[in-house]
Structures are given as structure tokens and as C-alpha cells.
Simulated scan of single mutants.
Amino acid sequence: MRKVNLLFLVGLCVGALVTLTVVVTTPLRHTPLPIPVAAVGSATSEKPITTPEKQQKPNPSDNGVAGSLEALLPDGHVSAVVFDRAKGTFALSVNADRGYTSASLVKLLIALNALETGQSPELISQMLSRSDDTIASRLWVDGGETSIVTNAVRRMGLTGTQPPSNPGRWGDTEITANDIVRIYRYLLDEAPAPARDTILTALRNATANGADGFRQYFGIPDAVGDLPWAVKQGWSCCRPTMMLHTSGLVGKNQFVVVVLTEQPQSVGYDAAKQQITNVVKNLVPLLRN
């Protein structure tokens, strides 16, 4: 009986060794865990993935238009932007982020602020249509001076606009053509309807001469022929250069057009007016599409 048990035990030990050998020498099998999507992106590319809305859009000025417009102001600088509201695209963009002092274009921001704080619509209409500096100065002070600009920057998402370093000189507000387009887009698409109607009516009724006697039909009004327009113009001299700006809506509000210019004062206003009008004339084919 003991011999049988001894043999039985030896058999068990041998069987266990064989089993252990099989387990150790047989390779393990497993199903790979799925890799997170984010990890796949990191592993396959050293560059971050660019979403469609962040991809850089083609610059409409890359077709040589920039050079032809700049040639019209041989002694100065020009920026020009045309935004097609019907298509939601820029038909033209030339030097759109170059900085200028605003002259009277800042009156658009003064008007919006004044209407929001309960000022007389008739007073604001007169300030815009006649480009009245006396009214603008009063509304500038009443509205909080430079806070008018800083509040607009925050509300409208302006990126190149800054208030004047001297709070008393509202015409020295720094602007870009891109930001003036954004102001018009805010006015048309986001501003309260009563404010929008008051401002647009005033811009459509811009007088031939400003309150200071300066003829303000240069640029858009003189250039676009029979196309309907609504404009806010700007002019200033000489700190130390001369600014002449034309901006507004053309073609039943379809196009936002902004042309900003800076020239040495030696050019003179008469020549500068003709030059900025010639710039807009070159844009007219875009405005008839």
C-alpha cells in the first residue's frame, strides 16, 4: 500500500512539472486597448490640428490690387476694405490693420454711446450728417470721454482701436480699416433698431459741406455714381500728417466700404480728395457685382 502511494505521489509531481512548463512556455494573448483619439493626434503629428474656422483665409488683396491702390497715393498711405454683407465675405482687403487717427470717424462710436444713454436723436443726427465737432465734443464729455472707446472695443471685439492719449482730443482715437468695418457690422446686425435707424438715416443724409464748411462728398459720394450710399467721412490736419477717410454703405447696405488715407500736409486737401476718390473709383466694379 505504501509503495502504491509513493508511486502515486511521484506521478503527481511529474504531472505538475509538465503543466508548469506548458504554462510558462505558452505565449500570453491579449486584446489591445483602444488608444484615445487625442493620443492618436499627438502620436501621429507634431503640429496641432487646425479647425476649419481657424484656418487662414486667402487675402483678397493678393491679386495685385494693393500695389495699384498704393500707386494712387505716391506720397502717402492707403488702407481699403470692402465687405460684402450678402455673401458674408471680404471682397477686398488692403493694409486692413494699419493704424490711423480717426478724425471724425470716431463719431460713430460717440453716436452709439449717446443714443444708448438717452441723448436726443435729433442732436446726434445733426452731429453725423454735418460732421459737427461742437456737438461731438459735448457728447464726448457727457459720455465719459475715453470710456466711449474702451467700452466699444470690448463690446464689438475691436482689435486695433485705442482711445486718444489726450482725453480731450477725440479725433486722435486710433483706428484700423478692419475695425471700422466691424463697427458698421455691429451697427447693422447687433445695435438696437432705434439707434440703427437714427444713425443710418443721418449717414444717408450727409450734407455736401460739413459744419466747418469743408466739402465732404469726396471718396464714396463722388465715386460711386448712381449707387445709393450712406457715409461718415473724416478729415484732420496736421499732427503732423493729414488724414482723409471715407467710410459707409454702398448699394442698399450690401457693401461696407472703408478707405483710410494718411498723407503729408504738403499734398494739400484738394489733391488728397481727388486721390481718395480715385481709390474708391477703382473699387466700383466690386460694388456692382
Rank of each mutant, 00 (worst) to 15 (best):
S42C: 00
M156H: 09
A71Q: 07
I220G: 03
S68A: 12
D75R: 06
E174D: 02
V181L: 06
N166K: 02
V82A: 08
L33P: 01
A16L: 15
E70D: 07
V37E: 07
T51R: 04
T198L: 10
S42Q: 11
E122L: 15
L249R: 05
I220L: 10
D212I: 05
A86Q: 14
D197S: 12
N178T: 10
S120K: 12
L12S: 08
Q126V: 15
N178E: 09
V4W: 06
T26L: 14
G225M: 04
K273A: 15
G118W: 05
D97M: 02
D226Q: 14
Y100S: 07
V94C: 08
V24R: 14
R204G: 13
A272N: 07
N209E: 11
V65P: 00
G64D: 01
S129K: 14
S93V: 02
Q274A: 15
P192A: 15
A16G: 11
V258A: 14
Q265C: 15
V106F: 04
V258R: 06
V257S: 10
Q126L: 14
L244F: 05
R155M: 12
D189Q: 11
G219C: 09
L7K: 03
G76E: 01
V106Y: 00
G157W: 07
W229M: 08
T173V: 11
V258D: 06
G219D: 06
V280T: 05
T26C: 09
T159C: 01
N5Q: 08
D132F: 11
P27D: 10
A86E: 14
K281E: 13
K3A: 12
T21P: 00
K273N: 13
Y100C: 11
L105P: 00
K107N: 07
